[in-house]
Design a protein around this nucleic acid. Structure first.
Length: 947
RNA sequence: GCGGAGGUUGCCGAGUGGAAAAGGCGCUAGAUUUAGGGUCUAGUUCCGUAGGGAUCCGUGGGUUCAAAUCCCACCCUCCGCACCA
């Protein structure tokens, strides 16, 4: 149990090339985990995904599959370039983080001043870390995503996507810093991390050759607009946009200037000057009056809003305030008369809200006026209710009958098409760039998109998803939701490392887009790395042939490459962290479906959670962080694997806690010592163990091993690694402890160990190899996984051991209560007639027919003399049996247990445990019974008398 | 806001309709050919002079012979929401 031991076995694996599979006659299993991104050292979070992948790889290998588990490195994108810049600038924080957390010696760190040097450094370190943690990776297939041949592969893929019409050109909104003149990424933000880009629909109301655009999140309510609201004290900007003149706030003017509108300031106008003027509603040409309101914020939207008093509490209140003269903003009588004629126009019907919804809610909540804080709450409640439950009514014309949530997008689209509206992007809250500038939303033009919103493409993915295995199954819905939500994605950037778009060389392919089908590339990387294939040969025809079987091979070796691909593909399992569900894993599916024929589409996806460090989330750029190298130096591979695999299940997050890791180390030490002891106490034997000579306990422990094998296999099938490890390690450990207590046979223990070590080999391969080497001369990594052997299965043995255990516990419990030192203990097992009644009840329960009448009939058939005693017992039996676990019922309906015999056999053991002489009697013919206990004897619960 | 996950004992966490609390940690006691932070054993909600009883799974209701588990409402925590890998 030390690093030399682990290094020794790693060297043996390497030397014997046991993890370097080539196609052969066996069934194959191709497992991949996402390649790591090399802007730092691999950390404990990576370790989880890798170790889970390795566990499955090792398990499948032992199950006889030809297993391919490859690895490569991802370096395309911006972070590595940014890191190189920061290092060459000697950025204080970066140097500190990479020196103290990533543990890179300062002299080396300062030399990493180009992206290439960074990649070269981390790829060596990462491979080392992966080797040292014992991953059974075929390193002959490694590559880096900036390798020229890989770029050819990506180029081919994008040509294919474009040919299939999955690439389009358009514009899209990004967070933008006007000062840096660049998009703002998450780590560039000083303030406002939570801000989202929201898209308002800007409805264009016309006014005296001017346009007053009103931003709204509820475009469907355009049918219910009764007037506009302006802030009377604010001075608005008049901007020339195309051939129109727009009246907007000055902040809105700024926003528009980044949104492809090229506005030109031509004048200003005070809000109060607009009051009483009329605008036309574009959808019905109705004239609407402009009125003053206090809640209009010039910084939100365009600074002028449309009023829908039937459905917006603020609008309703502001209107009522005017009508009742609560706030009149000094409007004249003429306007006031017009205001008084305004009636809310209801356009959404909501079950339960019969009148004007805004009025209802204002009344219910007792909102006083537009300045009442409760108006905010009223708005929230009503908007939510109407969005989810609302149906558009006849006021909306052809949209009548549509659900609110369905209609919104349709209406927006129609309004824009007709020129009645435009989109306005805005940030949900202010965002401040690291340079201190307030950010805006900019519309980037001529951007290339992958059209993930394409209905046919989307349906193809959704449809295929149905036939895939998703582990855990609960994530299937998550995938469906995300696919449904997925929109077109910008797939090119100007900055960073990567492959150029083949048809537009100034753009680089975005780094998530270039890592979608790379698992296929592992099959050819082998040939590149051993020199049988050169970059120059890898043209489009080559890829078409190898991956799609199109055309003819120009060279003989291409056939082998094609066969290699055809053998390994599809991916049988992609195992990944849950952070990749809404991005990489979706694109992984989309691109496979787009590029490859169906038989090469991935079979299964498994998701795992993160790893936190002493309860805190790790961060590569800020810390805390714990590198794989560090933990391996301290704990070694097996302890690390053991801890991570046993710490949490599936998508739950694991937590790396030093104190618990140390405990894991102790547990493994214990196992190692125990194994050593078992080996030294037994002798080599190749004979099949002789079951006839075995005691009940011997047969019991072998039975338990079979159960463990079954449990481990079914847990691994569901990727429940924690459960698998519990069964493979702790469950057997506890059984072995009990077995040793009960009286062990060293040869039987040796057999148990043979099973045990192989069960554990996928989890903790190094220590397993070491122990296995004392038992066999074949590497455990390529030995057979223990086979479930029905011959050893006997559930009655479990019942017997449980009976013994429970009886001891009962005695101890009594002793604890009566607080005497016992001198003599008598155990009375239940008489046969009692047990018969229980078995009858169990049979009935198994057939789902348990009731008093039927049970009494059964008892009569057994020709028992009926008495009050019998019927009372039958009543009790029904209650007891009804409470029994269904699994126990199943077992009991197949086996019977001789309680007297069981206790009698265990009597010496029980005496040792209790430290007192113990006798066992059948309650039927026990004469000595001073406290009249024997009548209390029940099925599986013997009576106890203590002196 | 939308979508998702979760709330179990001192702590981490099993358990998703049939005896709540597996396993681990911590704690307590004991053993030890114990330097130790090693190893092993037992106990660890409360009450109990016979193996029993009471309480109990975020809160409040409900369904059921039976609910941590199913239904309804509410409270709280965490994660994602895109051009960022």
């Amino acid at each position: 149990m030390n690093s030399e031991l682990e290094e020794k076995w790693q060297e043996i694996w390497n030397k014997n090339r046991i993890f370097e599979p080539d196609p052969d006659d066996r069934d194959k299993f191709f497992i991949t985990v996402p390649y790591p991104y090399l802007n730092g050292n691999l950390h404990i979070g990576h370790a989880r995904t890798f170790v889970i992948g390795d566990l499955v790889a090792r398990y499948k290998r032992m199950k006889g599959y030809n297993v391919l588990f490859p690895m490569a490195f991802h370096v395309t994108g911006t972070p590595i370039v940014a890191l190189a810049e920061l290092i060459s600038k000697k950025d204080e924080r970066t140097i500190k983080v990479y020196n103290t957390l990533h543990k890179i010696p300062l002299d080396i760190l300062l030399s990493l001043n180009t992206p290439e040097k960074i990649v070269d450094y981390f790829k060596v370190e990462s491979e080392l870390a992966l080797r040292k943690i014992g991953c059974s990776i075929d390193w002959r297939r490694k590559f880096t995503t900036t390798d020229p041949p890989y770029k050819r592969f990506i180029t081919w893929q994008f040509k294919k996507l474009k040919d299939k019409g999955y690439v389009s050109k358009g514009s899209h909104p990004v967070r933008w810093c006007p000062n840096c003149d660049n998009p703002v990424e998450d780590h560039d933000i000083l303030n406002g991390d939570d801000a989202n880009i929201i898209n308002y629909t800007m409805i264009k109301f016309s006014f005296d050759r001017c346009i007053i655009p009103c931003a709204t999140l509820r475009p469907e309510t355009v049918f219910g607009v009764t007037n506009l609201w302006v802030n009377p004290d604010y001075t608005y900007t008049i901007a020339a946009i195309d051939n129109e003149r727009w009246i907007v706030s000055s902040f809105a003017y700024k926003k528009l200037s980044y949104l492809d509108k090229n506005p030109l300031r031509v004048g200003t106008i005070k809000g109060s000057q607009l009051i009483g003027k009329f605008v036309k509603n574009p959808i019905n040409d109705k004239d609407l009056i402009i009125l003053p309101a206090s809640f209009v914020n010039p910084d939100d939207g365009t600074g002028i809003v449309m009023s829908v008093p039937a459905h917006a509490p603020y609008d309703y209140l502001a209107l009522r305030d005017l009508q009742e003269g609560i706030y009149d903003f000094g409007i004249n009588k003429e306007i006031l008369d017009l205001v008084k004629e305004i009636k809310p126009i209801k356009l959404i019907n909501v079950p339960g809200l019969n009148d004007i919804p805004a009025m209802d809610i204002v009344k219910n909540l007792g909102v006083k006026n537009q300045k009442d804080k409760k108006a905010e709450n009223a708005t929230k409640i009503l908007y939510k209710k109407e969005f989810h439950e609302g149906v558009l009514n006849e006021v909306t014309g052809s949209y009548a009958g549509l659900l609110c949530k369905k209609a919104r997008d349709v209406i927006t689209e129609d309004l824009i098409k007709k020129g009645y509206a435009d989109l306005l992007y805005d940030l949900s809250e202010p965002v401040i760039c690291r340079c201190g500038t307030e950010c805006v939303v900019k519309l980037v033009k001529d951007q290339w998109f992958l059209t993930y919103s394409n209905k046919e493409w989307k349906d193809l993915v959704l449809d295929y998803l149905r036939s895939m295995t998703i582990i855990p199954e609960e994530y299937r819905k998550e995938f469906e939701n995300k696919i449904d939500w997925l929109k077109d994605k910008a797939c090119a950037r100007k900055k960073g490392l990567g492959t150029r778009l083949p048809w537009d060389k100034e753009w680089l392919i975005e780094s998530l887009a270039d890592s979608t089908i790379y698992m296929a590339y592992y099959t050819i990387a082998k040939f590149l790395n051993d020199g049988r294939l050169t970059e120059e040969e890898m043209d489009d025809e080559f890829f078409d042939y190898v991956f799609l079987g199109i055309g003819h091979p120009k060279k003989e070796i291409y056939k082998a490459i094609r066969e290699e691909f055809n053998y390994w593909y599809p991916v049988d399992l992609r195992s990944s962290g849950k952070d990749l569900v809404p991005n990489h894993l979706l694109f992984f599916l989309y691109h496979h479906v787009a590029i490859f024929p169906k038989k090469y589409w991935p079979k299964a996806i498994a998701i795992n959670g993160f790893v936190s460090l002493e309860g805190e989330r790790m961060s590569k750029s800020k810390g805390p962080l714990l590198t794989i190298k560090e933990i391996l130096d301290e704990f070694g591979a097996d302890v690390t694997r053991f801890y991570i695999l046993s710490n949490s299940e599936q998508t739950q997050d694991a937590d790396w806690r030093y104190s618990n890791v140390k405990d894991a180390k102790k547990a493994l030490n214990r196992f190692y010592r125990l194994a050593k002891e078992i080996i030294s106490n037994s002798r080599v034997s190749n004979n099949e163990i002789n079951m006839d000579k075995m005691t009940r306990q011997d047969r019991w422990i072998l039975h338990r091993c079979q159960i463990a094998i079954m449990d481990v296999e079914s847990a691994i099938k569901d990727m429940k690694v924690r459960k698998a490890l519990q069964s493979a390690f702790y469950s057997i450990l506890n059984d072995v402890k009990w077995y040793k207590k009960r009286g062990e046979d060293s040869q039987v223990l040796r057999e148990v160990l043979k099973i045990w070590v192989r069960l554990l080999a996928p989890f903790i391969p190094h220590i397993s190899e070491e122990i296995w080497s004392w038992l066999s001369n074949v590497s455990v990594s390529v030995s057979d996984f223990p086979k479930f052997n029905e011959r050893f299965v006997d559930f009655s043995l479990d019942l017997e051991e449980d009976l013994v255990r429970r009886t001891i516990d009962d005695i101890k419990e009594i002793l604890a209560v009566i607080k005497i030192v016992p001198t003599r203990i008598i155990i009375y097992t239940a008489p046969e007639w009692k047990n018969k009644i229980y078995y009858s009840a169990i049979k009935l329960r198994q057939d789902d027919k348990l009731n008093m009448g039927l049970l009494m009939e059964e008892i009569k058939k057994d020709q028992q003399p009926l008495s009050k005693k019998v019927s009372n017992l039958a009543k009790n039996a029904i209650r007891d049996v009804e409470l029994m676990d269904p699994n126990l019922i199943k077992i009991l309906s197949n086996v019977t247990i001789d309680e007297f015999d069981t206790i009698k056999n265990a009597i010496n053991f029980m005496e040792r445990e209790i430290g007192c002489r113990i006798e066992v009697r059948d309650a039927k013919d026990a004469e000595y019974d001073p406290m009249n206990k024997k009548d209390a004897a029940k099925f599986l619960k013997p009576a106890i008398y203590i002196e």
